[in-house]
Write a protein that binds this DNA or RNA. Structure first.
Length: 427
RNA sequence: GGAGAGAUGGCUGAGUGGUCUAAAGCGCUCGCCUCGAAAGCGAGUGGGUGGGUAGUCCCUGCCCCGUGAGUUCGAAUCUCACUCUCUCCGCCA
């Protein structure tokens, strides 16, 4: 959520930000109009309340002295009715205002390239060389099914499309990847491990920005207020919702594994084969709470932490920077690490690292006290995948496949696989 | 799921219709005292949102005693609903 004061002092800046994102700027005028109306009502209502407070004291005093208060009481009855009507009107206006503000995206940082959609994202850097195969490489769904470590057919039976069953060395590889990633981030990058609930309430979803705008992307549990998490970002960022953190606690780094559940409402027909786009997938997520002045260096470090996993796994990747048209509702700046996927013949998103500045913090009420006695200020929040486990699994199968259909396990994972160096067919 | 108890400021805890602009204690900050510290003494100590003003200084209003509604001239206090916490019972990995 943007600061309402920004609409008062720099409405043009908000309009320009919306235009850069390819959205209609007209909503800014609606916000300004409602804000003015709200303040006018507040001034009127509060002056009446002031009078009521004063007169109520007078009445108490007069009654104590046995004086007649009938006329004042009658007058206050009317004043109270008027206050009630104004308060109701204020609530209505605030409701409208809040609804608008919650649906307005963040302002892209000045360093974000202007562009209309994903075709105008820019490549920042590359690491590693895509391997030259001396045989025809297979897509990961064929490799995995042939090895007996992926079972899409039975997943379709027990649940439905866009689900998968991992078997044997496949199941172990998932577990190995999760442990490996968390170990690297906790041991070498300074993150604290968190294991949060996979169901969260509506307030949490509003806090990080999934709601109210993107309801159709989420799975909701019937007859409850609970949603399945689409990413660990939601429960972990909301850990500190409505808190005032001590400045000495910052920066806070968290790493969390969760399963992630996404309805993929707008993706019908896309990536229908394999592990790339599932309704349920595993992800190790990095979340930071930082002082505002440090958030852009923290973003670069965050991307570096995600990249480190890719390097240790020996997977070729590149870093894309999202343009204004593709930067995401809540983010001010976003980088997507993308892994080389031989079956696609291109780089595929395997992480997404964003600086939200105070956009989420304002929604979720996450503040810190810059110094003893100072007023609380909003923190900046950041997060990024480190990494998406299903896509990492797919990338390992494809990039480490051999002509005979077996898959070499990257050295870094061998200890997590109980010493296994190659995945051979499972019975 | 059943029965009961409860929700007040950073914490403990008083307060059952009108100086509650919430007692007291603890904690914290500052000052005095001290070589320094402790003790003691004194002062201060929340959040939100408006107005005045160029201003995060200052002046000033309104709101906040779990949440929401109601009664009343006036609600922490009375009524109703809801949420959450705790205790006991039942069920359960």
């Amino acid at each position: 959520m943007l600061d309402i004061r920004l609409f008062r002092s720099e409405p043009d800046r908000v309009r320009q930000a919306l235009v850069k994102r390819g959205e209609e700027p007209g909503v800014v005028d609606d916000v300004v109009r409602l804000d003015e109306k709200r303040r006018a009502l507040l001034v009127e209502g509060e002056s009446l309340k002031r009078r009521r407070n004063q007169v109520s004291e007078d009445i108490a005093r007069m009654k104590k002295q046995g004086q007649d208060t009938g006329a004042l009481v009658a007058e206050m009855r009317e004043v109270s009715d008027r206050i009630k009507a104004i308060d109701e009107e204020v609530r209505g206006v605030e409701g409208e205002l809040q609804a608008l503000l919650l649906a307005i995206p963040n302002i892209p940082h000045d360093s974000v390239p202007v562009g209309k959609d994903e075709t105008e994202n820019i490549e920042v850097r590359r690491w590693g060389e895509p391997r030259q195969f001396d045989f025809k490489p297979k897509p990961h769904w064929d490799i995995g099914v042939n090895l007996g470590i992926l079972d899409f057919d039975r997943a379709r039976k027990i649940t439905g499309a866009r689900f998968v069953v991992y078997r044997g060395a496949g199941a172990r590889l998932v577990r190995a990847l999760i442990s490996f990633m968390i170990d690297v981030h906790t041991r070498d990058h300074g993150y604290k491990e968190i294991y949060p609930p996979f169901l969260v309430n509506r307030d949490s979803m509003v806090g990080t920005g999934q709601l109210p705008k993107f309801e159709e992307d989420l799975f909701k549990c019937r007859d409850t207020d609970y949603y399945l998490v689409p990413t660990a970002e939601v429960p972990v960022t909301n850990l500190h919702r409505d808190e005032v953190l001590d400045a000495s606690q910052l920066p806070i780094y968290y790493v969390a594994y969760t399963a992630c559940f996404r309805a993929e409402a707008g993706a019908a027909g896309r990536d229908t084969r394999g592990l790339i786009r599932q309704h349920e997938f595993d992800k190790v997520e990095l979340v930071k709470f930082v002082r505002p002045e440090t958030s852009y260096e923290e973003l670069e470090k965050l991307v570096g932490d995600a990249e480190d996993i890719l390097r240790r796994l020996g997977l070729p990747y590149r870093i894309s920077q999202m343009c204004t048209g593709d930067v995401g509702f809540a983010a001010a700046k976003k980088y997507d690490p993308e892994v080389w996927m031989p079956s696609y013949g291109r780089y595929v998103e395997i992480s997404s690292c964003s600086n939200f500045e105070d956009f989420q913090a304002r929604r979720a009420g996450i503040r810190f006290r810059p110094s003893a006695g100072a007023k609380p200020e909003y923190v900046h929040t950041l997060n990024g995948s480190g990494l998406a486990v299903g896509r990492t699994f797919a990338a390992i199968l494809e990039n480490y496949q051999q002509a005979d259909g077996t898959v070499v396990i990257p050295d870094a994972l061998v200890p997590y696989m109980g010493g296994m160096k190659v995945i051979t067919p499972e019975r």
